[in-house]
């Protein structure tokens, strides 16, 4: 019996081999090399010089490094916090008001419309918005002038740029939590709402105590995945502001890129990338733990 149970599993290694080798060569090895490079001083051409934790010390005392992480907090507000809250309210509204009072078709129509920005490559979304926010002939200023307001240099003004970038990201991001939450709401038992209504609960009571509680797993998935995404934001910044003016909109990912390919401080770039990776790995580990905890509960 034992033999028939183990023997069929033998030959499967052959199928994993190409994938495992490819994973090693294209992900694991470059990743380890990058960590190694982060302990060196290297311009990408001459041979790297070992400097231990030198780059990490440099990062701690580097105002631009801190600015990049501070800006990342703004990005988190725009990509994680606002879209999750708005997505929740909008999903609940579309699902239990619009869908029941105005028709299911209308609810899916609005959902599809709000989701549309998500289908764009972020770089193209950036191109579109840079065009709208262009200071001299852009649509946004043109509209402001039309109602008697002054033009703004949306992406070129150091005090304004990060807020403009945030607005664009909210626009881009809303559709994702909305779609996930609307799917999640379908598995909430309508009897719960029924019972709450009988007990005299208001819409907001039901929203806070039933909806949010019931779709907690999806909220968690959305928050954690967008949090990981927000640390990787690059294309939007590259297209919209190149991190400027000054360091007003610099983010870790763009800062790493600058060090790699513009300043030839490859070692320092690798350090920034390694720090980003450490943060993302911590978030991923939390994700795996909670995810497998949920699967156990659901009996997979």
């Amino acid at each position: 019996m034992n033999i028939t149970r183990t023997a069929p599993n033998r030959g499967y290694w052959a199928f994993l081999l190409p994938g495992a080798i490819a994973l090693f060569l294209i992900i694991v090895l470059p990743f380890l090399v990058n960590v190694g490079v982060s302990f060196t001083n290297w311009n990408g051409v001459s041979s790297p010089v070992w400097i231990g934790l030198g780059n990490y010390e440099k990062a701690l005392n580097d105002a631009t490094f801190w600015a990049s992480f501070k800006n990342n907090l703004y990005i988190i507000v725009a990509m994680v916090i606002i879209p999750t809250i708005v997505g929740l309210l909008l999903a609940a509204f579309l699902y239990d008001y619009v869908s029941s009072k105005l028709g299911k078709g209308l609810a899916s129509f609005f959902r599809a419309g709000y989701y549309l920005p998500q289908i764009l490559p972020v770089a193209i979304a950036g191109v579109v918005w840079r065009w709208i926010m262009q200071p001299n002939w852009g649509v946004l200023n043109w509209m402001l002038n039309a109602v008697g307001l002054e033009s703004q240099n949306w992406l070129g003004d150091a005090d304004l740029a990060i807020y403009s970038v945030m607005a664009i990201m909210v626009w881009f991001q809303i559709g994702y939590p909305l779609v996930i939450f609307m799917a999640a709401l379908q598995r909430v038992d309508p009897d719960l709402y029924e019972a709450a209504s009988v007990d005299g609960a208001t819409w907001f009571d039901k929203f806070f105590y039933i909806t949010i509680h019931q779709i907690r797993p999806e909220i968690f998935v959305v928050v954690l995945t967008t949090l990981i995404h927000s640390l990787k934001v690059f294309a939007q910044i590259f297209v919209l502001t190149r991190g400027g003016p000054g360091r007003a909109t610099i983010v870790p990912s763009y800062f790493a890129y600058q060090n790699f390919f513009e300043k030839s401080s490859v070692g320092y770039g690798a350090t920034i990338a390694t720090i980003m990776t450490a943060i993302i790995i911590i978030l991923t580990v939390i994700f795996i733990n909670v995810q497998s905890g949920q699967e156990l509960k659901e009996g997979y």
Binding site: I27, V28, V37, A256, I272, I280, I281, I288
Partner: peptide, 24 residues
Amino acid sequence: WFLVFFLMANTLPQESLAYPLYYF
């Protein structure tokens, strides 16, 4: 463990692979 590796590979920031991949 393989699964954990594959998931990690997917969430890893591309910045941490970029220079070595460019060099290779």
